[in-house]
Design a protein around this nucleic acid. Structure first.
Lengths: 222, 222
DNA sequence: CTCTCATTCAAACGTCCGTTTGAACTATGC
DNA sequence: GCATAGTTCAAACGGACGTTTGAATGAGAG
Protein backbone atom coordinates (compact mmCIF):
# COMPACT_ATOMS: atom_id res chain seq x y z
CA UNK A 1 0.00 0.00 0.00
CA UNK A 2 2.58 2.66 0.90
CA UNK A 3 4.59 3.53 -2.18
CA UNK A 4 4.51 1.86 -5.53
CA UNK A 5 5.78 3.70 -8.53
CA UNK A 6 6.85 7.05 -7.24
CA UNK A 7 9.73 8.35 -9.23
CA UNK A 8 8.83 7.60 -12.82
CA UNK A 9 5.42 7.76 -14.36
CA UNK A 10 5.94 4.98 -16.88
CA UNK A 11 7.85 2.63 -14.62
CA UNK A 12 5.95 -0.56 -13.95
CA UNK A 13 6.74 -4.31 -13.88
CA UNK A 14 6.49 -4.54 -10.12
CA UNK A 15 2.91 -5.79 -10.21
CA UNK A 16 1.04 -6.26 -13.44
CA UNK A 17 2.85 -6.72 -16.72
CA UNK A 18 0.59 -4.38 -18.68
CA UNK A 19 0.59 -0.82 -17.46
CA UNK A 20 -2.60 0.35 -15.84
CA UNK A 21 -3.31 4.01 -16.23
CA UNK A 22 -4.06 6.06 -13.16
CA UNK A 23 -7.62 6.26 -14.34
CA UNK A 24 -7.93 2.48 -14.54
CA UNK A 25 -6.28 1.94 -11.17
CA UNK A 26 -8.69 4.39 -9.61
CA UNK A 27 -11.68 2.59 -11.09
CA UNK A 28 -10.38 -0.80 -9.97
CA UNK A 29 -9.71 0.30 -6.42
CA UNK A 30 -12.98 2.22 -6.28
CA UNK A 31 -14.87 -0.94 -7.19
CA UNK A 32 -13.14 -2.79 -4.40
CA UNK A 33 -13.44 -0.19 -1.67
CA UNK A 34 -16.95 1.02 -2.46
CA UNK A 35 -17.99 -2.62 -2.49
CA UNK A 36 -16.44 -3.21 0.91
CA UNK A 37 -17.50 -0.12 2.80
CA UNK A 38 -20.22 1.52 0.76
CA UNK A 39 -20.11 4.98 -0.76
CA UNK A 40 -20.28 7.05 2.39
CA UNK A 41 -17.99 4.73 4.27
CA UNK A 42 -15.15 5.00 1.77
CA UNK A 43 -12.97 8.10 1.51
CA UNK A 44 -11.22 9.34 -1.58
CA UNK A 45 -8.00 9.31 0.38
CA UNK A 46 -8.34 5.60 1.07
CA UNK A 47 -8.94 4.99 -2.62
CA UNK A 48 -6.11 7.15 -3.90
CA UNK A 49 -3.60 5.73 -1.42
CA UNK A 50 -4.49 2.18 -2.41
CA UNK A 51 -4.33 3.11 -6.08
CA UNK A 52 -0.93 4.79 -5.59
CA UNK A 53 -2.39 7.97 -6.98
CA UNK A 54 -2.50 11.54 -5.80
CA UNK A 55 -5.61 12.71 -4.05
CA UNK A 56 -6.16 15.29 -6.77
CA UNK A 57 -6.22 12.61 -9.46
CA UNK A 58 -9.85 11.78 -8.75
CA UNK A 59 -11.03 15.27 -9.46
CA UNK A 60 -8.74 15.57 -12.44
CA UNK A 61 -9.92 12.37 -14.13
CA UNK A 62 -13.54 12.26 -13.01
CA UNK A 63 -14.51 15.58 -11.46
CA UNK A 64 -15.82 14.46 -8.09
CA UNK A 65 -16.28 11.48 -5.82
CA UNK A 66 -19.78 10.87 -7.10
CA UNK A 67 -18.58 11.08 -10.69
CA UNK A 68 -15.96 8.44 -9.90
CA UNK A 69 -18.71 6.20 -8.57
CA UNK A 70 -20.83 6.85 -11.63
CA UNK A 71 -17.96 5.94 -13.94
CA UNK A 72 -17.26 2.78 -11.96
CA UNK A 73 -20.93 1.75 -12.09
CA UNK A 74 -21.09 2.36 -15.81
CA UNK A 75 -17.97 0.34 -16.48
CA UNK A 76 -19.07 -2.52 -14.25
CA UNK A 77 -22.60 -2.71 -15.61
CA UNK A 78 -21.71 -2.49 -19.29
CA UNK A 79 -20.87 -6.17 -19.88
CA UNK A 80 -23.79 -7.31 -17.72
CA UNK A 81 -26.24 -5.16 -19.65
CA UNK A 82 -24.80 -6.27 -22.96
CA UNK A 83 -25.07 -9.93 -22.09
CA UNK A 84 -28.60 -9.55 -20.77
CA UNK A 85 -29.68 -7.76 -23.91
CA UNK A 86 -28.06 -10.36 -26.09
CA UNK A 87 -29.76 -13.25 -24.34
CA UNK A 88 -33.13 -11.54 -24.32
CA UNK A 89 -32.86 -10.81 -28.04
CA UNK A 90 -32.00 -14.43 -28.65
CA UNK A 91 -34.91 -15.71 -26.57
CA UNK A 92 -37.45 -13.42 -28.17
CA UNK A 93 -36.25 -14.32 -31.62
CA UNK A 94 -37.05 -17.96 -30.87
CA UNK A 95 -40.65 -17.30 -29.84
CA UNK A 96 -42.38 -16.76 -26.52
CA UNK A 97 -39.81 -17.33 -23.74
CA UNK A 98 -40.77 -19.16 -20.56
CA UNK A 99 -40.44 -17.59 -17.15
CA UNK A 100 -37.54 -19.87 -16.34
CA UNK A 101 -35.69 -18.87 -19.49
CA UNK A 102 -36.16 -15.21 -18.66
CA UNK A 103 -35.09 -15.60 -15.07
CA UNK A 104 -32.03 -17.53 -16.12
CA UNK A 105 -31.12 -14.98 -18.77
CA UNK A 106 -31.35 -12.26 -16.16
CA UNK A 107 -29.63 -13.93 -13.21
CA UNK A 108 -26.72 -15.62 -14.92
CA UNK A 109 -25.09 -12.50 -16.37
CA UNK A 110 -25.21 -11.00 -12.89
CA UNK A 111 -23.79 -13.96 -11.00
CA UNK A 112 -22.22 -16.36 -13.42
CA UNK A 113 -20.53 -14.04 -15.88
CA UNK A 114 -19.27 -11.83 -13.14
CA UNK A 115 -18.30 -14.42 -10.57
CA UNK A 116 -16.56 -16.66 -13.03
CA UNK A 117 -13.50 -14.56 -13.63
CA UNK A 118 -11.78 -15.03 -10.34
CA UNK A 119 -11.04 -12.44 -7.74
CA UNK A 120 -11.79 -9.49 -9.97
CA UNK A 121 -15.25 -10.79 -10.88
CA UNK A 122 -16.25 -11.25 -7.27
CA UNK A 123 -15.17 -7.70 -6.54
CA UNK A 124 -17.24 -6.33 -9.40
CA UNK A 125 -20.25 -8.35 -8.33
CA UNK A 126 -20.05 -7.14 -4.77
CA UNK A 127 -19.67 -3.57 -5.95
CA UNK A 128 -22.77 -3.76 -8.12
CA UNK A 129 -24.79 -5.41 -5.40
CA UNK A 130 -23.83 -2.80 -2.85
CA UNK A 131 -24.55 0.17 -5.03
CA UNK A 132 -27.93 -1.21 -6.07
CA UNK A 133 -29.11 -1.06 -2.46
CA UNK A 134 -27.03 1.68 -0.96
CA UNK A 135 -28.68 3.48 1.96
CA UNK A 136 -28.72 6.71 -0.01
CA UNK A 137 -31.54 7.04 -2.50
CA UNK A 138 -29.29 9.22 -4.62
CA UNK A 139 -26.81 6.38 -5.06
CA UNK A 140 -29.53 3.83 -5.71
CA UNK A 141 -30.97 5.98 -8.46
CA UNK A 142 -27.53 6.34 -9.93
CA UNK A 143 -27.45 2.57 -10.29
CA UNK A 144 -31.02 2.36 -11.53
CA UNK A 145 -30.26 4.82 -14.30
CA UNK A 146 -27.61 2.43 -15.55
CA UNK A 147 -29.65 -0.76 -15.29
CA UNK A 148 -33.21 0.35 -15.94
CA UNK A 149 -33.42 0.20 -19.73
CA UNK A 150 -32.65 -3.49 -20.04
CA UNK A 151 -34.39 -4.34 -16.77
CA UNK A 152 -37.61 -2.86 -18.04
CA UNK A 153 -37.52 -5.20 -21.02
CA UNK A 154 -37.31 -8.20 -18.70
CA UNK A 155 -40.26 -7.03 -16.66
CA UNK A 156 -42.39 -6.71 -19.79
CA UNK A 157 -41.30 -10.11 -21.06
CA UNK A 158 -42.04 -11.72 -17.70
CA UNK A 159 -45.55 -10.32 -17.69
CA UNK A 160 -46.13 -11.88 -21.09
CA UNK A 161 -44.72 -15.19 -19.95
CA UNK A 162 -46.98 -15.25 -16.90
CA UNK A 163 -50.39 -14.19 -18.21
CA UNK A 164 -52.23 -15.85 -15.34
CA UNK A 165 -50.58 -13.64 -12.73
CA UNK A 166 -51.67 -10.07 -12.18
CA UNK A 167 -49.24 -7.48 -13.57
CA UNK A 168 -48.64 -6.09 -10.08
CA UNK A 169 -47.83 -9.58 -8.89
CA UNK A 170 -45.28 -10.08 -11.64
CA UNK A 171 -43.77 -6.71 -10.77
CA UNK A 172 -43.63 -7.82 -7.15
CA UNK A 173 -41.77 -10.98 -8.08
CA UNK A 174 -39.55 -8.96 -10.32
CA UNK A 175 -38.33 -6.61 -7.60
CA UNK A 176 -37.80 -9.62 -5.38
CA UNK A 177 -35.58 -11.09 -8.07
CA UNK A 178 -33.63 -7.85 -8.33
CA UNK A 179 -33.21 -7.71 -4.58
CA UNK A 180 -32.11 -11.29 -4.10
CA UNK A 181 -29.65 -11.05 -6.93
CA UNK A 182 -28.15 -7.87 -5.51
CA UNK A 183 -27.95 -9.35 -2.04
CA UNK A 184 -26.11 -12.42 -3.26
CA UNK A 185 -23.86 -10.28 -5.40
CA UNK A 186 -22.99 -8.08 -2.45
CA UNK A 187 -22.23 -11.17 -0.39
CA UNK A 188 -24.24 -9.70 2.44
CA UNK A 189 -26.16 -12.96 2.71
CA UNK A 190 -23.09 -15.10 3.27
CA UNK A 191 -22.50 -14.46 6.91
CA UNK A 192 -19.15 -16.21 7.17
CA UNK A 193 -16.54 -14.50 5.01
CA UNK A 194 -14.59 -16.56 2.55
CA UNK A 195 -17.19 -19.29 2.51
CA UNK A 196 -17.85 -19.10 -1.20
CA UNK A 197 -15.25 -19.97 -3.74
CA UNK A 198 -15.34 -19.92 -7.49
CA UNK A 199 -16.93 -23.34 -7.87
CA UNK A 200 -19.85 -22.28 -5.70
CA UNK A 201 -20.70 -19.52 -8.13
CA UNK A 202 -22.54 -21.64 -10.66
CA UNK A 203 -24.21 -23.65 -7.91
CA UNK A 204 -25.41 -20.43 -6.34
CA UNK A 205 -26.83 -19.36 -9.67
CA UNK A 206 -28.67 -22.67 -10.10
CA UNK A 207 -30.06 -22.55 -6.58
CA UNK A 208 -31.23 -18.99 -6.98
CA UNK A 209 -32.84 -19.67 -10.34
CA UNK A 210 -34.69 -22.70 -9.00
CA UNK A 211 -35.82 -20.70 -5.99
CA UNK A 212 -37.13 -17.88 -8.14
CA UNK A 213 -38.74 -20.06 -10.77
CA UNK A 214 -40.78 -21.84 -8.13
CA UNK A 215 -41.78 -18.55 -6.58
CA UNK A 216 -42.76 -17.01 -9.92
CA UNK A 217 -44.66 -20.05 -11.12
CA UNK A 218 -46.62 -20.75 -7.99
CA UNK A 219 -46.16 -17.91 -5.55
CA UNK A 220 -47.79 -15.01 -7.40
CA UNK A 221 -51.35 -13.90 -7.00
CA UNK A 222 -53.64 -14.13 -9.94
CA UNK B 1 -13.93 9.57 31.27
CA UNK B 2 -16.80 11.57 32.72
CA UNK B 3 -19.54 10.16 34.88
CA UNK B 4 -22.16 8.44 32.77
CA UNK B 5 -22.91 5.43 34.92
CA UNK B 6 -26.48 6.14 35.94
CA UNK B 7 -29.17 5.41 33.44
CA UNK B 8 -32.11 5.48 35.80
CA UNK B 9 -34.24 2.73 34.37
CA UNK B 10 -36.69 2.14 37.17
CA UNK B 11 -38.45 5.39 37.83
CA UNK B 12 -39.63 5.94 34.29
CA UNK B 13 -43.28 5.40 33.63
CA UNK B 14 -44.33 2.61 31.31
CA UNK B 15 -46.47 4.78 29.08
CA UNK B 16 -45.24 7.93 27.43
CA UNK B 17 -45.64 10.96 29.64
CA UNK B 18 -46.76 14.19 28.01
CA UNK B 19 -43.10 14.94 27.34
CA UNK B 20 -40.53 12.62 25.90
CA UNK B 21 -37.20 12.46 27.63
CA UNK B 22 -34.11 13.54 25.74
CA UNK B 23 -33.03 9.93 25.63
CA UNK B 24 -36.29 8.84 24.02
CA UNK B 25 -36.27 11.68 21.52
CA UNK B 26 -32.76 10.75 20.50
CA UNK B 27 -33.74 7.13 19.96
CA UNK B 28 -36.82 8.11 17.97
CA UNK B 29 -34.97 10.49 15.69
CA UNK B 30 -32.06 8.08 15.35
CA UNK B 31 -34.46 5.42 14.09
CA UNK B 32 -35.79 7.82 11.52
CA UNK B 33 -32.51 9.29 10.30
CA UNK B 34 -30.46 6.12 10.34
CA UNK B 35 -33.26 4.48 8.40
CA UNK B 36 -33.25 7.26 5.82
CA UNK B 37 -29.55 7.76 5.25
CA UNK B 38 -27.79 4.79 6.79
CA UNK B 39 -25.31 4.89 9.65
CA UNK B 40 -22.40 6.52 7.87
CA UNK B 41 -24.67 8.93 6.02
CA UNK B 42 -26.27 10.33 9.16
CA UNK B 43 -24.42 12.74 11.46
CA UNK B 44 -24.96 13.12 15.16
CA UNK B 45 -25.52 16.80 14.55
CA UNK B 46 -28.42 16.08 12.22
CA UNK B 47 -29.92 13.78 14.84
CA UNK B 48 -29.47 16.12 17.79
CA UNK B 49 -30.83 19.13 15.92
CA UNK B 50 -33.94 17.20 14.88
CA UNK B 51 -34.35 15.90 18.42
CA UNK B 52 -33.97 19.40 19.86
CA UNK B 53 -31.10 18.14 21.96
CA UNK B 54 -27.56 19.28 22.50
CA UNK B 55 -24.83 17.56 20.53
CA UNK B 56 -23.25 16.38 23.76
CA UNK B 57 -26.42 14.59 24.81
CA UNK B 58 -25.62 11.57 22.67
CA UNK B 59 -22.35 10.92 24.41
CA UNK B 60 -23.87 11.65 27.76
CA UNK B 61 -26.78 9.23 27.41
CA UNK B 62 -25.22 6.55 25.22
CA UNK B 63 -21.47 7.03 25.08
CA UNK B 64 -20.90 7.16 21.35
CA UNK B 65 -22.62 7.21 17.98
CA UNK B 66 -22.32 3.47 17.62
CA UNK B 67 -23.71 2.92 21.11
CA UNK B 68 -26.71 5.06 20.13
CA UNK B 69 -27.26 2.82 17.13
CA UNK B 70 -26.91 -0.27 19.27
CA UNK B 71 -29.48 1.02 21.73
CA UNK B 72 -31.86 1.91 18.91
CA UNK B 73 -31.50 -1.54 17.35
CA UNK B 74 -32.10 -3.25 20.66
CA UNK B 75 -35.22 -1.21 21.35
CA UNK B 76 -36.60 -1.70 17.85
CA UNK B 77 -35.97 -5.43 17.74
CA UNK B 78 -37.28 -6.26 21.19
CA UNK B 79 -41.01 -6.48 20.33
CA UNK B 80 -40.26 -8.28 17.05
CA UNK B 81 -38.14 -10.88 18.79
CA UNK B 82 -40.71 -11.30 21.52
CA UNK B 83 -43.53 -11.83 19.08
CA UNK B 84 -41.50 -14.27 16.98
CA UNK B 85 -40.60 -16.28 20.04
CA UNK B 86 -44.18 -16.32 21.23
CA UNK B 87 -45.49 -17.57 17.91
CA UNK B 88 -42.82 -20.19 17.54
CA UNK B 89 -43.49 -21.49 21.04
CA UNK B 90 -47.16 -21.66 20.22
CA UNK B 91 -46.59 -23.52 16.97
CA UNK B 92 -44.20 -26.02 18.47
CA UNK B 93 -46.55 -26.68 21.35
CA UNK B 94 -49.22 -27.70 18.83
CA UNK B 95 -47.02 -30.26 17.10
CA UNK B 96 -44.85 -30.18 14.00
CA UNK B 97 -45.35 -26.82 12.27
CA UNK B 98 -45.56 -26.58 8.50
CA UNK B 99 -43.17 -24.45 6.48
CA UNK B 100 -45.94 -21.98 5.74
CA UNK B 101 -46.76 -21.60 9.40
CA UNK B 102 -43.12 -20.96 10.20
CA UNK B 103 -42.66 -18.47 7.39
CA UNK B 104 -45.80 -16.64 8.43
CA UNK B 105 -44.73 -16.56 12.05
CA UNK B 106 -41.42 -15.08 11.02
CA UNK B 107 -42.54 -12.57 8.40
CA UNK B 108 -45.59 -11.12 10.04
CA UNK B 109 -43.91 -9.76 13.17
CA UNK B 110 -41.43 -8.02 10.89
CA UNK B 111 -43.91 -6.50 8.48
CA UNK B 112 -47.36 -6.67 9.94
CA UNK B 113 -46.74 -5.91 13.58
CA UNK B 114 -44.35 -3.14 12.73
CA UNK B 115 -46.14 -1.62 9.77
CA UNK B 116 -49.53 -1.66 11.41
CA UNK B 117 -48.97 1.12 13.87
CA UNK B 118 -48.91 4.00 11.49
CA UNK B 119 -46.06 6.32 10.74
CA UNK B 120 -43.93 5.19 13.65
CA UNK B 121 -44.13 1.55 12.66
CA UNK B 122 -43.01 2.22 9.12
CA UNK B 123 -40.04 4.16 10.46
CA UNK B 124 -39.03 1.34 12.74
CA UNK B 125 -39.38 -1.19 9.95
CA UNK B 126 -37.24 0.83 7.60
CA UNK B 127 -34.63 1.30 10.29
CA UNK B 128 -34.39 -2.42 10.99
CA UNK B 129 -34.22 -3.27 7.32
CA UNK B 130 -31.47 -0.79 6.68
CA UNK B 131 -29.30 -1.83 9.58
CA UNK B 132 -29.64 -5.49 8.70
CA UNK B 133 -27.92 -4.88 5.37
CA UNK B 134 -25.76 -1.87 6.06
CA UNK B 135 -22.65 -1.66 3.87
CA UNK B 136 -20.44 -1.97 6.93
CA UNK B 137 -19.95 -5.49 8.20
CA UNK B 138 -19.54 -4.06 11.68
CA UNK B 139 -23.07 -2.66 11.62
CA UNK B 140 -24.55 -5.79 10.12
CA UNK B 141 -23.03 -7.88 12.88
CA UNK B 142 -24.43 -5.46 15.41
CA UNK B 143 -27.86 -6.27 14.06
CA UNK B 144 -27.18 -9.98 13.81
CA UNK B 145 -26.21 -10.11 17.46
CA UNK B 146 -29.66 -8.80 18.32
CA UNK B 147 -31.64 -11.07 16.01
CA UNK B 148 -29.63 -14.25 15.84
CA UNK B 149 -30.93 -16.17 18.86
CA UNK B 150 -34.53 -16.32 17.74
CA UNK B 151 -33.60 -16.54 14.06
CA UNK B 152 -31.57 -19.67 14.70
CA UNK B 153 -34.62 -21.35 16.16
CA UNK B 154 -36.57 -20.68 12.98
CA UNK B 155 -33.83 -22.13 10.82
CA UNK B 156 -33.83 -25.33 12.85
CA UNK B 157 -37.61 -25.58 12.76
CA UNK B 158 -37.67 -25.02 9.00
CA UNK B 159 -35.20 -27.82 8.46
CA UNK B 160 -37.46 -30.13 10.39
CA UNK B 161 -40.49 -29.01 8.44
CA UNK B 162 -38.74 -29.63 5.12
CA UNK B 163 -37.05 -33.01 5.55
CA UNK B 164 -36.92 -33.63 1.82
CA UNK B 165 -34.70 -30.62 1.18
CA UNK B 166 -31.00 -30.65 1.98
CA UNK B 167 -30.05 -28.64 5.10
CA UNK B 168 -27.89 -26.32 3.00
CA UNK B 169 -30.85 -25.73 0.73
CA UNK B 170 -33.09 -24.83 3.62
CA UNK B 171 -30.39 -22.49 4.90
CA UNK B 172 -30.23 -20.95 1.45
CA UNK B 173 -33.96 -20.34 1.42
CA UNK B 174 -33.73 -19.01 4.92
CA UNK B 175 -31.20 -16.30 4.12
CA UNK B 176 -33.30 -15.40 1.10
CA UNK B 177 -36.25 -14.94 3.43
CA UNK B 178 -34.19 -12.75 5.73
CA UNK B 179 -32.99 -10.68 2.81
CA UNK B 180 -36.34 -10.16 1.17
CA UNK B 181 -37.94 -9.23 4.46
CA UNK B 182 -35.22 -6.70 5.19
CA UNK B 183 -35.44 -5.24 1.71
CA UNK B 184 -39.18 -4.76 1.96
CA UNK B 185 -38.83 -3.35 5.45
CA UNK B 186 -36.25 -0.87 4.27
CA UNK B 187 -38.56 0.14 1.41
CA UNK B 188 -35.59 -0.09 -0.95
CA UNK B 189 -37.67 -2.27 -3.26
CA UNK B 190 -40.46 0.25 -3.69
CA UNK B 191 -38.90 2.53 -6.25
CA UNK B 192 -41.54 5.22 -6.18
CA UNK B 193 -41.70 6.85 -2.75
CA UNK B 194 -45.01 7.11 -1.00
CA UNK B 195 -46.50 4.29 -3.03
CA UNK B 196 -47.32 2.11 -0.06
CA UNK B 197 -49.84 3.08 2.55
CA UNK B 198 -50.97 1.36 5.67
CA UNK B 199 -53.53 -0.86 3.94
CA UNK B 200 -50.86 -2.23 1.66
CA UNK B 201 -48.92 -3.53 4.62
CA UNK B 202 -50.94 -6.67 5.18
CA UNK B 203 -51.22 -7.28 1.44
CA UNK B 204 -47.47 -7.01 1.17
CA UNK B 205 -47.11 -9.55 3.95
CA UNK B 206 -49.48 -11.96 2.22
CA UNK B 207 -47.73 -11.59 -1.13
CA UNK B 208 -44.33 -12.11 0.41
CA UNK B 209 -45.47 -15.14 2.37
CA UNK B 210 -47.02 -16.73 -0.71
CA UNK B 211 -43.88 -16.01 -2.70
CA UNK B 212 -41.65 -17.58 -0.07
CA UNK B 213 -43.87 -20.58 0.61
CA UNK B 214 -43.83 -21.52 -3.06
CA UNK B 215 -40.08 -21.09 -3.22
CA UNK B 216 -39.49 -23.14 -0.07
CA UNK B 217 -41.88 -25.92 -1.06
CA UNK B 218 -40.76 -26.38 -4.63
CA UNK B 219 -37.62 -24.33 -5.23
CA UNK B 220 -35.11 -26.03 -2.93
CA UNK B 221 -32.76 -28.78 -3.95
CA UNK B 222 -33.11 -32.18 -2.37
C1' DC C 1 -31.92 27.58 52.79
C1' DT C 2 -27.90 24.50 51.27
C1' DC C 3 -26.14 20.52 49.30
C1' DT C 4 -26.26 17.05 45.78
C1' DC C 5 -26.26 15.23 41.53
C1' DA C 6 -28.18 14.19 37.14
C1' DT C 7 -28.79 16.74 33.07
C1' DT C 8 -28.10 20.41 29.60
C1' DC C 9 -25.43 23.83 27.42
C1' DA C 10 -22.06 26.60 24.39
C1' DA C 11 -17.71 26.09 22.93
C1' DA C 12 -13.84 24.00 21.52
C1' DC C 13 -10.92 19.78 20.58
C1' DG C 14 -8.28 17.29 16.88
C1' DT C 15 -9.16 14.70 12.80
C1' DC C 16 -10.84 13.62 8.53
C1' DC C 17 -13.54 14.97 4.59
C1' DG C 18 -14.05 16.41 -0.67
C1' DT C 19 -12.19 19.83 -3.31
C1' DT C 20 -8.98 23.34 -5.23
C1' DT C 21 -4.67 25.49 -6.33
C1' DG C 22 -0.51 26.39 -8.81
C1' DA C 23 3.75 24.67 -9.72
C1' DA C 24 6.45 20.72 -11.58
C1' DC C 25 6.96 17.03 -14.53
C1' DT C 26 6.39 14.32 -19.04
C1' DA C 27 5.97 13.52 -23.84
C1' DT C 28 5.45 15.15 -28.30
C1' DG C 29 5.71 18.53 -32.35
C1' DC C 30 8.04 22.24 -34.10
C1' DG D 1 16.39 24.87 -28.68
C1' DC D 2 11.03 26.42 -27.59
C1' DA D 3 6.09 25.69 -27.17
C1' DT D 4 2.29 22.99 -25.92
C1' DA D 5 -0.88 20.01 -23.86
C1' DG D 6 -1.65 16.24 -20.63
C1' DT D 7 -0.73 14.58 -16.20
C1' DT D 8 1.02 14.35 -11.41
C1' DC D 9 2.40 16.52 -7.31
C1' DA D 10 2.56 18.64 -2.38
C1' DA D 11 0.01 21.68 0.01
C1' DA D 12 -3.67 23.97 1.51
C1' DC D 13 -8.75 25.31 1.50
C1' DG D 14 -13.15 25.59 4.29
C1' DG D 15 -16.18 22.73 6.43
C1' DA D 16 -18.19 18.72 8.77
C1' DC D 17 -17.29 15.03 11.68
C1' DG D 18 -17.41 12.48 16.54
C1' DT D 19 -15.96 13.58 20.86
C1' DT D 20 -14.66 16.19 25.10
C1' DT D 21 -14.74 19.87 28.38
C1' DG D 22 -16.25 22.66 32.18
C1' DA D 23 -19.55 25.62 33.58
C1' DA D 24 -24.64 26.50 34.06
C1' DT D 25 -29.19 24.64 35.12
C1' DG D 26 -32.82 22.48 37.66
C1' DA D 27 -35.29 19.51 40.74
C1' DG D 28 -35.27 16.91 45.15
C1' DA D 29 -33.61 15.84 49.97
C1' DG D 30 -32.01 17.25 54.33
Amino acid sequence: MPARAVAGGKENSVETPPVESTRERLLNIAEQRFGEGGYEGTSLRAITVAAAANIAAVNYHFGSKEALLRAAVARAMAPVNTERRRRLDQLEAAGQPTAEQLIRAFIEPGLDLVLRRGERGAIVARFIGRVAFDPSRRIRELYAAEADPVEARYLAALQQALPRAAPESVAFGYVNMLGLLALHQSQALSRAPGTEDVDDASRLAENLIAFLVAAFDRGLRA
